[in-house]
């Protein structure tokens, strides 16, 4: 059976992750939520720690903590005491630190911390694959339903509200989706790098896209390509899986971005001499 092979399992899970991080990542890029993604991802470690401490399924615990952080942020955004990015910085690093402290306190616990932080292809189980595909399918279907209102509030929230879009539930749903996707993707790319898999393929895809939907599609393809390349490198050279995938994605971005600058420069030069 193909699922007996750890590499096939990791590849299958990684491709499932790319399917959802592509379109969701587009919204992260369009709505400038990269720091929010980081914050929720960092809180995932606290989720892992609490999961072990109270003997709850780690994905469930991570999802719970991530959603709580999202809702907390949505509520705290209303205050004017500190700026939102300060708030994100506090929550992000505090939850990461508290997570590490709790793991340190659980002296009986022997976990591979590096695996959680940076991903581990050896650790992907068959159950993880189901998690990725079931969680991913739920997230993808929700995103399809929310697509139009989300796009409308991304362009201009007041305009969308004046035209009858219920902005608050839509915004909250997006935050919860981010939390859900982080919970299922954590094992493949790791807590510290999950945001990269959300934003790098999406940012790279912008170069090829003329509509929001095509950008989402290209983001999926670039994400899958990065996963395939990254995992192969990880397998052959024994490098950590998350950083390998993210490096592959970053390489795509650099190539695409420099080709963009190059064609722009050449065009300008031609215009000047012509």
């Amino acid at each position: 059976m193909i699922l007996d092979d750890f590499f096939a399992r990791a590849m299958l899970a990684g491709i499932g992750v790319a399917l959802i991080t592509g379109p969701l990542g587009c919204f992260i890029v369009w709505r400038r939520m990269a720091y929010f993604g980081d914050t929720v991802a960092h809180s995932a470690l606290l989720g892992v720690a609490l999961g072990f401490a109270f003997d709850v399924d780690p994905t469930l615990a991570v999802g719970g903590v991530a959603i709580s952080i999202s809702v907390l942020l949505a509520v705290l955004q209303q205050q004017r005491w500190v700026a939102v990015d300060t708030l994100l910085g506090i929550l992000s690093h505090a939850s990461l630190s508290v997570g590490l402290v709790v793991i340190g306190l659980l002296t009986w616990l022997r976990i591979d911390l590096m695996g959680y932080l940076f991903g581990d292809i050896l650790a992907v189980t068959e159950a993880d694959i189901y998690r990725v595909y079931i969680g991913g399918a739920v997230a993808l279907i929700t995103l399809v339903f929310l697509w139009r209102p989300l796009l409308a509030i991304t362009v201009h929230e007041d305009l969308a509200r004046a035209e009858g879009v219920k902005a608050l539930p839509v915004r909250l749903a997006l935050m919860i989706l981010v939390a859900l996707v982080i919970a299922v993707a954590m094992k493949i790319v790791g807590i510290l790098l999950i945001t990269a898999l959300l934003i790098i393929p999406a940012a790279t895809a912008r170069r090829f896209s003329s509509s929001p939907e095509s950008m989402a599609l290209f983001a999926i393809l670039i994400g899958m390509f990065s996963v395939a390349v990254g995992l192969s490198v990880s397998l052959n050279y024994d490098t950590p899986s998350g950083p390998s995938i993210v490096s592959a994605a970053a390489l795509c971005f650099v190539l695409v971005f420099s080709s963009h600058l190059l064609t722009k420069g050449v065009r300008r030069w031609l215009n000047r001499s012509g």
């Binding site: 890029v29 369009w30 139009r148 209102p149 796009l151 409308a152 991304t154 362009v155 201009h156 007041d158 305009l159 969308a160 004046a162 035209e163 009858g164 879009v165 940012a203 912008r206 896209s209 003329s210 509509s211 929001p212 095509s214 950008m215």
Partner: peptide, 26 residues
Amino acid sequence: VGYVPQKLNMDPVLPLSVHRLMTLTK
């Protein structure tokens, strides 16, 4: 009601055609 808001800065990272902008909510 038709509304044209004061500040609508289109971020170029969101690819959107005029037709698409027109039909965002309707």
